[in-house]
């Protein structure tokens, strides 16, 4: 198969980037999308040029590292598929394919197709966990969890933190990402003690990091490679409302500590 790849090149965060065209010819339809970029990079190497930078690691759809916007769509045209699981047979011969980094104010470009997704880290750090020290836990079977509830929690927990939901949203909202974690922990008995202030702390951090609000475009769930359902955002809103009803003064105030030398 033959293609023209138009790929975003940008040397540093400060530079103005541009799309550069790279023709690829005679490749097998069995190649994965990232393997085509690998071949382009090999050609660049053979000319002594710097390769195209892009994030990836597992190449099997689970680590959440890969992150491209392909023909305007985060993770490309296939449903429930990460970029690394896309194959060239999903494209038509001769096609021109545009590859860009995620575009969101909270995700500045580092180089070429690599962006900084660390704001998602800080949202989790603010409360996306259950506060239990190693060694405190009682026997695992002392907590019973109905099967269907465990499965719903599992489905929410399958978010890979790729950030495609943010990239797909016109407001660059991280609501789906936050909703997935909040839902997982709210469904489990172990998550109850911190349930209300968890949602407040995470939502506040989300705002603080400059992510936009949800105005019901639903593009996040369409882009999500792990089928995190849009209904979780409604659930997040309910959790948030419940916390607001209890009132801030009854919840631990969010505190941000620094590393003391």
């Amino acid at each position: 198969m033959n293609f023209t790849f138009r790929i975003w090149r940008q040397r540093t965060a400060a530079d103005k980037g541009q799309l550069v065209a790279y023709p690829v010819s005679d490749i097998s339809s069995d190649l994965s999308f990232l393997e085509v970029i690998d071949t382009i990079n090999e050609t660049l190497s053979s000319r002594g040029e710097e390769t195209i930078a892009f994030d990836m690691d597992c190449r099997e759809g689970i680590c959440g590292a890969c992150s491209l916007v392909i023909n305007g769509q985060p993770h490309g045209p296939e449903k429930e598929t990460t970029t690394c699981q896309l194959y060239m047979r999903h494209f038509s011969d001769g096609e021109t394919i545009t590859v860009e980094p995620y575009r969101a104010d909270s995700f500045p470009v580092i180089r070429d197709l690599v962006v900084d997704r660390s704001p998602l880290e800080r949202i989790i750090q603010a409360g996306g966990y259950i506060s239990v020290h190693t060694g405190e836990a009682g026997d695992a079977n002392a907590t019973l969890i109905p099967k269907h509830q465990a499965e719903l929690a599992f489905e929410a927990a399958s978010c890979i933190g790729c950030g495609a939901c943010v990239a797909a949203c016109p407001n660059a909202s991280a609501m789906l990402f936050v909703a997935a974690k909040v839902t997982q922990l709210a469904l489990l008995p172990q998550g109850q003690p911190e349930r209300l202030h968890r949602v407040i702390r995470m939502a506040e951090t989300m705002d603080h990091e400059g992510f936009g609000n949800c105005s019901n475009h639903y593009l996040c769930a369409e882009a999500c490679p792990k089928e995190i359902p849009i209904s979780l955002i409604a659930r997040l809103n309910r959790e948030f409302l419940a916390a607001a009803l209890v009132g801030q003064e009854f919840l631990e105030p969010p505190h941000h500590s620094v590393h003391h030398e």
Partner: peptide, 23 residues
């Protein structure tokens, strides 16, 4: 090995469960 499972369940790791709610 047993302590690991206890710890992970306490953290909210959604292991597969049976209908009775047990692991």
């Amino acid at each position: 090995s047993g302590n690991i499972i206890d710890q992970c369940v306490a953290q909210g790791v959604p292991f597969a469960r049976e209908y009775g709610g047990y692991l």
